[in-house]
Each structure stands twice: as structure tokens, then as C-alpha cells.
Amino acid sequence: MNWTMLDTWIVIAGVLSACSCSVLGNFLLLRRMSMMGDAISHAVLPGLAVGFLLTGSRSSLVMFLGAAVVGVLTAVFTQWINRFGKVDEGASMGVVFTALFAVGLVLIVQAADAVDLDPGCVLYGAIETVPLDTVQLGSLSIPRAVLTLAIVFAINLGVIIVFFKEFKICAFDEELATTLGIRSAWMHYLLMTLVAVTTVASFESVGSILVIAMLIVPPATAYLLTDRLQSMILLSLGFATLSAIGGHWSAMAVPPIFGFADTNTSGMMAVVAGLLFSFAFVFSPRQGLIARFLKPKTN
């Protein structure tokens, strides 16, 4: 295995994408909306497709807009079906995101001849091609995806910092937030918009489906290790970074051990995130399996 500049760029893209997702994922987890992340990351497909069909480019603002709109629509439709149709929330989500994903799939397949966007690429990305498409920034030539992801990460982090206490209180008690004059619905849709935008920015690198791994798994790992929100967010960023680096490394290093060629990075990022979670699940000092097993019985 030889590590090159290309690998460094791949890892940077992975880390940025993973961190953008994780920072939002903490609030999804606390609001018991983890599956909403799953739903949105599936549902942005038609938005992507339409944006792509209109502009023929993978990096247009139109595509971002299209995906963000569809992402928010997912949240809105889910709420409508839940409220007006009196359908259980999980089922409402299931109806909305599968229908949207199906629309996207048909669009992509029908347009497959005209444009270069195959569903596989949307699902599990092509992080290996990230360093090939660069933009010139001053004297520096950096991959376009890295630039996009850096901007998205900065936006996510900025929004979370600026609205930290609002997000916190909405996650804790939505009704309390409302009585305190915080528009909890706005905070909800803001979060959903960020999730959708992050999904689009990440779809080339980790792929839209694996966005959900980064949205959920690092925050869940952190949740097992701490009780404080700030440290949970910081820890989740740490785990996201570790998953991205470890994912790329193991994609290159692990398969050869069994005599195979290397594999794709985004899948391994999810696997490494899962491994980190298993460690926390077993060894967490207060909530791990071992700690709970060893804890003396009270009677």
C-alpha cells in the first residue's frame, strides 16, 4: 500500500463530509428523528436528478437547491401524513421517502442515456474520483468536492454554534421551547434543510445512503460515552474523523490481507464507524455491557 497525495485529498473529503453529518446527527438523535436522516438522504434523489437534468452538471447550485427543497418536502409531507392522515410517524416517513426515491430512480434511469449519473454513484459515491476534479484557488489546486464540503461543514458548524441553545432546548422539550418564544418548527425545518444540503454535498464522496451512517453512528457512539451535549458533539466529531481516516486506510489495507484487491472507501467508513460503536457498546465505562455486567446488584 502506498499513500499518495490523492489519498490525503480523499481522506480530507471523507473527514469533512463525516463531520458535516455528525454535527447535525447529534440533534437528530436527541429528537428521536434518526430515521428522518435516513428518509431525507434517500428522498433527495429526485431533487438531484432534476437539478442534474436541468443543468447537466453535478456541482450546480440548482442541484443543491433542488435537493434542499425535496429534503424539506420530505419532512413536510411526513408531518402532513402523520397529522392529517393519522398514520404512525415511522410509516409516514416510509411512504414519503420510498415514493420520492422511486421517482428519482425512474428519472435517472430514463435519463441515463443523456447524462452521466448512475444510481450506484448516488448511493455509494465515488470518493476515489474526488481528487481528479480540481479547482484553482489562488496558487493552490484543490479538489472541487473538498471545497464544497468545507463550505458545507463551515455552514453546519456555524449554524449549530449560533443556534446552539435553541437547538438544545428544542431537542429537549419542544413545548417548552415554544412557550419560551422559540419557533421550534423553524428550527426543525432549518435542521432538515441542513441535512438535505449536506446529503447533496456528500453524495459524490460517501454517497447519499452512507450519509446516514455518519449522521447516526458517530453521535450514537458519543451518546453512550457522555451525558453532556457539548462533549457529545465534540466526541462525535472525533469519531467521525476516525471513521473517515480508518475507513480509507482499511479499504486499502484490509482486503489484501484476505487476498482480495482493495474496496471502496465509503462502505468501509460505515464499517469503521460501526466498529467504534461496538467498542463503546461493550466498553463504555458507565453504560457498556461490561460495566453493566460488573455493577453490583443493589439487593
Binding site: R32, S34, D38, L210, A213, V217, A251, T263, A273, G274
Partner: peptide, 20 residues
């Protein structure tokens, strides 16, 4: 919901890696 998300994404990631 979190438990579902973890299993869904990690297993799928595993599958994608094997597919690779």
C-alpha cells in the same frame, strides 16, 4: 430509531465494501 439507523447503515456499508 437510532438502533434501526445504526444497523441499517453499518450493515449496508459492509455490503457496499464487499460489493467493491
Amino acid at each position: 430509531d437510532t438502533a434501526l439507523g445504526i444497523v441499517l447503515s453499518v450493515f449496508f456499508g459492509m455490503g457496499v465494501s464487499l460489493l467493491g
